[in-house]
């Protein structure tokens, strides 16, 4: 082989390896930088007082993250609970019942919805959803709500992750062999029985993976949630109370009030907490997924 060809081959190999490795290195670097920057707040306060307290008074040097962590988890959980059933049902209908013309009409629409910038969803939430909750929905349940609430955040986030889920579910169901459906139909199963007992079952690892991806996305979603959830550092008490998720805390405050060194460090810790939650969550879900795949095979 000519030397120049060998050099090209070697360069290409190394270059591609380097890019792959740098993605991994980037993650490590982010983690390390966040940890270093959080060091100041961590040395001045016990971890328990930071994570276990919900009192957030930076001017008095009190940095309790519990309300933010709870707010993040609550908004995410609500969004997934609201999004999963309709996303799954619509995807099953599209893949198992709808004809190919409808399917090919919907596929680009779903991609389009997934591509709308979050801030647009945020504006829609502020203009439509927040007044609806405050004027119509909340009075049925509580005395007063501004509408900027856990519920508003959950709904906006749910609407944002539904197209993401549907896009992935669609590809997932399309990858399930037709033979498998026919094996079930040939035994006298109805289409619904086939969808539920065979298609969804076969797709279960993929469904879990999709939900994991949607949760990761929801954890980190900032602007749209920030615009409608009220941003008050209280523990989430009811659907109509405001919450303050971690990403919103960082986005609202970073760059301001930097005169307090503890404050900047606290915001870095907020980012670190978010980072750790997402990594831990992904590791756990990988383990679940692995077991699920073995069981279904």
């Amino acid at each position: 082989m000519k030397l120049s060809r060998r050099i090209k081959d070697l360069t290409a190999t190394r270059l591609m390896m380097l890019t792959t490795m740098s993605a991994f290195a980037l993650m490590i670097i982010i983690g390390v930088v966040l940890a270093v920057k959080s060091e100041q707040i961590l040395s001045g306060h016990s971890l328990w007082s930071l994570l276990g307290s919900s009192v957030w008074k930076p001017m008095k040097g009190e940095f309790g993250f519990l309300a933010f962590i709870a707010g993040t988890l609550a908004v995410t959980a609500l969004a997934i609970v609201l999004a999963l059933p309709p996303a799954l049902m619509a995807s099953i209908w599209l893949s198992e019942y709808a004809n190919s013309r409808i399917r090919s009409l919907f596929a680009p629409v779903i991609d389009l919805l997934a591509g709308i910038p979050p801030v647009v969803y945020g504006v829609w939430g502020t203009l439509t959803l927040v007044p609806l909750i405050s004027e119509t929905l909340a009075p049925c349940f509580v005395d007063f709500s501004t509408g900027y609430s856990l519920l508003a955040g959950g709904i906006v986030l749910a609407i944002m992750v539904i197209p993401l889920m549907m896009g992935l579910f669609g590809e997932l169901f399309a990858s399930i062999p037709r033979d498998l459906r026919e094996a079930s139909l040939a035994l006298g199963a109805t289409r619904w029985e086939t969808a539920r007992r065979v298609v969804v079952r076969k797709a279960l690892p993929g469904i879990v993976a999709t939900v994991v991806l949607a949760i990761s996305r929801a954890f980190g979603e900032t602007i749209a949630v920030m615009m409608v959830c009220g941003n008050v550092a209280d523990m989430p008490g009811s659907l109509f109370n405001p919450v303050y998720p971690l990403p919103a805390l960082i986005a609202n405050n970073y760059g301001e009030m930097m005169s307090l060194p503890d404050y900047e460090s606290a915001l870095m810790l907020a980012a670190l907490i978010l980072f750790v939650i997402i990594i831990a969550f992904n590791v756990i879900s990988h383990a679940i997924l692995h077991r699920l795949k073995q069981r279904i095979a």
Binding site: P177, D179, L180, E182, A183, S184, L185, A186, L187, G188, A189, E193, R197, V198, R201, K202, I296, A297
Partner: peptide, 30 residues
């Protein structure tokens, strides 16, 4: 009901995503 009267054996074996037992019990369970 019509399809139930005709067992289908496909080109490649198409086991359902469940146990050996679950595969045979699938039809009767329906």
């Amino acid at each position: 009901a019509l399809r139930r009267r005709m067992g289908l054996l496909a080109q490649r074996p198409t086991v359902l995503p469940m146990s050996v037992f679950g595969n045979v019990a699938y039809g009767p369970k329906l």
